[in-house]
Every structure is written in C-alpha cells, then in structure tokens.
Write a protein that binds this DNA or RNA. Sequence first.
DNA 1: TTTGTTGTTCGCAAAATTACAAACAATCTT
DNA 2: AAGATTGTTTGTAATTTTGCGAACAACAAA
Lengths: 109, 109
Amino acid sequence: MNKINYTADQEQLARFAKAMGHPTRIAILHFLAQRNECFFGDIHEVLPIAKATVSQHLTELKDAGLIQGTIEPPKVKYCINPENWKLAHALFDKMFTDCCPSKKNSCCG
Amino acid sequence: MNKINYTADQEQLARFAKAMGHPTRIAILHFLAQRNECFFGDIHEVLPIAKATVSQHLTELKDAGLIQGTIEPPKVKYCINPENWKLAHALFDKMFTDCCPSKKNSCCG
DNA sequence: TTTGTTGTTCGCAAAATTACAAACAATCTT
DNA sequence: AAGATTGTTTGTAATTTTGCGAACAACAAA
C-alpha cells in the first residue's frame, strides 16, 4: 500500500529520455557527433523541417542539458554537453543493467 | 542542401526513448526489475496514480515493445520484453558511445 | 546608415499526452 | 445465476508537443 516517490535519478532519466524521444532530436544528436563544426545552419540544412522548428528542438535538447549552444556572431555553435552526456549514459546503462532479464530476480528470468 | 532521412535505428531509438520519457514509466521499469511477481495490482499499488492511468502507461510501454503482458486469470502479469530490452540497450549504448565527446572528431573535442 | 546574414521569438493551429471516474469485460467462487 | 476480483476501455478535460510563417534582434559589411 506504500506509494513510492520517484527518485531524483528516475526523474532525471525520464527528462533525458523525453528529450531523446523524437527522431529529429535523435538525428541532431547523431549529427553533432559526426561534425566538428556544429552551427545552427549546418544542422538546419540537413533536416527536412523549418528553421523555427529546428530551433525549438535545439532548445529542448539544451533545456534537458544534453547539448549546449555558444554564440559566435553571427552564428551559433551547438555541441554535446559532455558532463550531462556522461551522466545520461550512466543512468541509461544502470537502468538497462539493473533490469537485465538475465538476472535471477528479474521478471522473465 | 541534402536533407537526411531518419534511419530505422533512429526511429526505433526515438520510440524507445519516448516510452521512457515519463517518471511513472521509468518507475514501472525499475519496479519490474526488482520483482519476480509483476502483476498489475502490484504495480498499481506502489504508484500514486489511478489504475486507469497505470493501465495507459503499461500500454505505452507494451506498444513500444519494452514490456509484455500475460493474462493469468484473473490477473495480468507484466514483465520486461527481453529481446527488445537488449535492442534498446544496444541502441542507446551505441548512441552514447558514438557521440562520446572524448572522440577526436566530436564537437567539444 | 543601409543592407545582408544568422537564428530566435511570437502567434497560431492541429495533434498527442496525461489524468481521472465511471462503465465494462472476463474470470472465478458461491 | 449472483457476487467478488482484476484490469481494460470509454468519455472527458487540461496541458503539452509539434510545426509553420512572419516578425524580430544582433551583428558585420558595404
């Protein structure tokens, strides 16, 4: 009967996952990994959507902490946020490892 | 100027991420990992939301392929879907590894 | 100062998400 | 058949997300 509270890690993981929960944003993250130059224009150029929408998706990734933007007039350079990227990697990995169905006490075990 | 298409892997990863993009659903996944018995009632009991809402969240996780449900009258047993769980683990891991900021050709490198 | 380039913000519309109570269905027990 | 138990489905409401064009802001160059 005891209701659980969501832990800080669970909330954080959900926030990261939500930010990654759209193909465009996954594509942006992939794109940032393949380029040294990560200006807005470069990103917009390869995506099949309006620049206003690209800007929105970038804002969401930034708000979630997965990327960061730097103004280099007249351009804006985007890149992965290294610390939060590591954190996200760790949280996801822990999740998938903890819930590993091969573990003895797991469902479907 | 060449617009990219989202790859099947990107779409799949986004689908998994979207399903994980809510604290309740993260909590459900964690819960499924800690129990052998994974009946609906057990899950509902620990969550601070109505059963209809729990059912909805379970449906989303099921539709994304992350969990599976088995009817064991009069109960319903839920558990992790082992194959898709592995797939999700692999896709997320590949993403985080590919985009690792420590790599030479990465942004922020 | 005017023009051009680069992105963000605003205003709007359509669709999806989240949540609940109430009704329903399926199955056992009496 | 009637009741009890377990979850799902339905109907509804509030909020969020996604997307676009147009307007705007910041800055460099002519």
